[in-house]
Amino acid sequence: MTATTIIAAEQDQTPTRIQSVNRRILLAAWRMPSFRVGFFIFVALLLVSVVYPEISSVSATKMVVKDKFLPPVLLGEKWVWEHPLGTDQLGRDMLMRSFIGLRYSLLVGVVTVVLIFIIGCGLGLFAGFKGKWWDIVIMRITDAQLSIPMIILAITILGVSRPTVPTIIIVLALSGWPLYARVARSAAVTERGKEYVRGLRVLGAGDWRILLLFAAPNILPPIAFVAVLDVARMMIFEAILGFLGLGIQPPTPSFGSIIADSRKYLINAWWIATIPGIFLAVALTSINLMGSALEKARNRIYGGL
């Protein structure tokens, strides 16, 4: 029997069927309509952004100057079916550009959060479990890192080095880990004093064995559920960097750079700025709906209600 199920059994006063806590949280979240709405929108966007650019013959970067500033279908004059969401100042298809932008946005968001999770939780668990000097040193670095706003750090690094997808991900991850380190550390400190850890110590288990095999499965899932919300945050940061010209570089479209370029044509061609923004906002809403549903479910289950 793993440690997770022990906890689950403790919380269920009348255990009808023993289920792991994580399964119960996922199930509780799934029962919320907001989670399902978010989930379906997210899956739809994900599929469409992965599949559509592969099967469509329209290019996101090909410029057709005679087709520039075509408005979206049914809005304004001169629209054509070939470009359902219109074209930009260089005659590039907005739909395709938005999908490619979405692709990179999701990629950066998800990978960054995974990295942040690994770095932050790794350091936090280690600090909390080892205690003493390790704890003090790691946590002071965390505090210092927290006190530099992430965006300043990110633009400082990206502003002076060349932004590519890997560097963007690394920079965002570097500036995002401290909060996770804090949360993981405080969880690890509580976990350290628990009965089962002391039991394991008596049995002669080493620090690493306890930490990785027994404590981590208890500490990490609750943090992971909330990490979903951070995917949205990282996607916003990616867009902000693109907007400042420090994100994915043209001609590859990214939401931030499309919106930044479109500012000049705001009055004549409002859709160039609006459409990527709406795409981004819808994607973020879907992620946030899932994230907050998971968070609610987690709080409810851990609250024992």
């Binding site: 907007f243 981004l280 992620i287």
Partner: peptide, 8 residues
């Protein structure tokens, strides 16, 4: 609100 990018 949390889903609206500020610059947009």
């Amino acid at each position: 609100f949390v889903s609206i990018p500020n610059f947009w």
